[in-house]
Simulated assay, not measured.
Amino acid sequence: MITHVVLFKWRDGVTAQSEAAQALHAAFQLLPGQIEEICDWQCGFNTTADDKAWDYLLVSTFQSREDLHTYFEHPAHARVVEMADRITELGFGDLE
């Protein structure tokens, strides 16, 4: 089992309430129905007031590294990454 974690920081001028952040969240929520390799999927906005905290979190699981790579290469994932790249900075990692 592979756990994939992505942490996002909004670029200057972006907030959780902004149209772009809300659209990104909606797109993330659709991915489990579009990519069958996803076993579990959690995503959401940070609700604390700590400026040092990350703004958005995605935690997903996959049966194998091959499934994770299939997810990475899926066109639906590519579209969401393009959206995220416009409004976020990110840090990520995979845990086995």
Rank of each mutant, 00 (worst) to 15 (best):
M1W: 09
M1E: 10
M1Y: 09
I2R: 04
I2C: 03
I2P: 01
I2D: 00
T3S: 10
T3V: 14
V5Q: 06
V6A: 08
L7R: 14
F8C: 14
F8S: 08
F8T: 08
K9L: 10
K9D: 11
K9F: 04
W10A: 09
W10P: 04
R11E: 08
D12N: 13
D12F: 07
G13K: 13
V14G: 07
V14Y: 06
T15E: 08
A16Y: 01
A16Q: 09
A16C: 09
E19D: 12
E19M: 00
A20L: 07
A20V: 06
A21L: 05
A21K: 04
Q22W: 00
A23S: 09
H25I: 01
H25T: 04
H25V: 03
A27H: 00
A27P: 05
A27W: 01
F28A: 04
F28P: 03
Q29P: 01
Q29Y: 00
L30N: 03
L30D: 10
P32G: 06
P32T: 05
G33C: 05
G33R: 11
Q34C: 02
Q34E: 13
I35F: 04
I35R: 00
E37M: 03
E37R: 11
I38N: 01
I38R: 03
C39P: 00
C39D: 12
D40K: 12
W41I: 12
Q42P: 00
Q42V: 08
C43E: 04
C43M: 00
C43T: 15
G44R: 01
N46I: 08
N46R: 06
T47G: 11
T47E: 13
A49K: 14
A49P: 02
D50F: 09
D50N: 15
D51Q: 14
D51M: 08
D51G: 04
K52Y: 10
K52F: 11
A53G: 12
W54H: 15
W54D: 12
W54L: 14
Y56S: 07
Y56H: 11
Y56Q: 11
Y56D: 08
L58F: 05
S60I: 03
S60E: 09
S60N: 05
T61R: 14
Q63W: 03
Q63L: 13
R65D: 12
R65Q: 14
E66V: 13
E66F: 06
D67S: 10
L68A: 01
L68T: 02
L68K: 03
H69I: 01
H69N: 13
T70L: 11
Y71I: 07
Y71F: 15
F72N: 11
F72I: 03
E73M: 11
E73P: 00
H74A: 14
P75D: 13
P75W: 14
A76M: 10
A76V: 06
A76L: 08
H77S: 12
A78L: 15
V80S: 03
V80M: 06
V81Q: 12
M83V: 01
A84C: 06
A84L: 05
D85C: 13
I87L: 14
T88H: 08
T88L: 09
T88Q: 04
E89C: 12
G91D: 14
F92C: 03
F92W: 06
G93H: 09
D94A: 02
D94I: 02
L95N: 07
L95G: 01
E96H: 10
E96R: 09
E96S: 12
E96K: 07
